[in-house]
Computed example of a mutant assay.
Amino acid sequence: MTSIGFIGIGLMGHGMARNLIEKGHALTILANRSRERVDDLIARGATEAKTPRELAAATEIVLTCVPTSEDVEGIVYGDDGMLAGAREGFIHIDTSTANPVSTLKIAADYHARGLRFADAPLARTPKEAQEGRLNVMVGANPELFDEILPILKCFAENVFRVGELGAGHKIKLINNFMAMSHASVVAEAVATARATGVDPKALYDLVSAGGANSAMFQMIMPYVLEGDASRLQFAIANARKDLSYFIAMANAAKTVGLVGPAVLQTLTLAYGLGHGHKLVPYLTDVLTRLDGRTRG
Score class of each variant (00 low, 15 high):
2 T>I: 14
8 G>I: 06
10 G>L: 01
13 G>H: 06
17 A>R: 01
20 L>Y: 03
23 K>S: 14
33 R>I: 09
37 R>D: 04
40 D>W: 05
41 L>N: 09
41 L>G: 13
43 A>I: 09
44 R>T: 10
45 G>T: 09
45 G>Y: 03
45 G>E: 07
47 T>C: 08
50 K>S: 15
50 K>C: 07
51 T>W: 04
57 A>W: 02
59 T>D: 00
60 E>F: 04
60 E>I: 00
62 V>P: 09
69 S>Q: 05
72 V>M: 10
72 V>R: 07
74 G>Y: 14
75 I>A: 06
81 G>E: 00
82 M>E: 02
88 E>R: 13
92 H>I: 13
93 I>N: 07
94 D>I: 06
95 T>L: 12
95 T>S: 14
109 D>F: 06
122 L>Y: 13
131 E>C: 12
133 R>V: 04
135 N>E: 11
138 V>F: 02
140 A>D: 03
141 N>L: 01
143 E>H: 07
145 F>S: 01
152 L>M: 11
154 C>W: 00
155 F>C: 06
161 R>Y: 04
166 G>N: 02
166 G>I: 01
169 H>S: 13
178 M>F: 08
180 M>T: 07
182 H>A: 12
184 S>V: 03
188 E>P: 03
195 A>R: 12
206 L>N: 02
207 V>T: 11
210 G>S: 14
215 A>V: 15
217 F>E: 08
218 Q>S: 14
225 L>K: 11
233 Q>L: 11
236 I>W: 02
241 K>F: 08
244 S>W: 00
248 A>Q: 13
250 A>L: 08
255 T>N: 12
256 V>T: 13
262 A>Q: 14
262 A>W: 01
270 A>Y: 04
276 G>A: 01
276 G>L: 06
277 H>F: 08
278 K>V: 14
279 L>N: 12
283 L>S: 04
283 L>Q: 03
287 L>M: 14
296 G>E: 15
